[in-house]
Design a binder for these strands. Structure first.
Lengths: 137, 137
DNA sequence: AAATAAACAGAAATAATTTCTATTTAGGAG
DNA sequence: CTCCTAAATAGAAATTATTTCTGTTTATTT
């Protein structure tokens, strides 16, 4: 199993804590994006004392650190998963509509510096939904 | 003022009600995307009895009818605005980060039938953020 | 070892959204 | 025109994801 996400954690501005390692391990051992509560349910089995607000905070911090990504799925919850890419360059993700597995679209320069109908494009967000190789079998 | 959205309402599967006309008028008279509560605040000045759940329902129904679009902005609220396009073909929107004005990207065939990293693309969502002509002056 | 900062728990609050039930309204059939 | 049916709606209440707050623990630095 690749330890790339542990490495990223170690290299990041946030601390390398057992809690954060457990979050990474949980994502590595399971498949697909998870909502904060699901992550919490797992952490509670690993740590005697464990709060949901801490999970929310860690997930967001780990997104900022380039370890996780937040993706859009059906419903109004937020979902997170391991960022499969290099963690720093601009890119977008594709989420399997069945299992929530996350892939990525590297090197997106589609809209950089462009203008559309008089609007100067300053940012863009692309979320692809698809069927991952396993679910497509 | 173009009555295109009234026409769309009349042509849609949902009824042409004073409430829905008022929603369209409100969007036509103001600039940019609005959250449900803002729409409600306005409707309360027009109708003596007026409930927020009804506003939520109408906004969603009018999105399904191709009259409105739901767009992403900062924060965790949902935002709606008039769909500037033809209302039926697949397209995406650009939202001014300052005023919330909505433009559109027509004819998006970027991802149709494609595969990305083994994922078969089944849907895509693109949200552009920009500066509209007025705000850019 | 003391000082400092970050991480965290747990409770409580917030706020957006949804559900539910009953009422009103509009349109079509007779 | 009046009854009938379906859609639209209000208003209250519930739900639920998320955030805030305060105090405690843990880790790192000096």
């Amino acid at each position: 199993m690749s330890k790339i996400h542990f490495d990223r954690l170690a290299a990041s501005a946030i601390k390398d804590t057992p809690r954060r390692r457990a979050i990474i391990s949980f994502f590595e051992k399971s498949t697909g994006a998870k909502d904060p509560e699901t992550v919490w349910e797992h952490l509670k089995t690993k740590f005697r004392r464990c709060g949901l607000p801490g999970v929310y905070r860690n997930l967001e911090q780990m997104v900022n650190a380039g370890i996780l990504v937040r993706v859009q799925r059906e419903g109004r919850k937020r979902y997170y998963g391991l960022c499969p890419g290099c963690g720093h360059m601009h890119h977008h993700h594709i989420v399997c509509v069945k299992c929530g597995k996350i892939g990525e679209m590297p090197e997106c320069t589609l809209f950089k510096g462009r203008t559309l109908g008089g609007f100067k494009i300053v940012d863009h967000f692309i979320q692809l939904s698809g069927i991952c190789p396993e679910c497509g079998k």
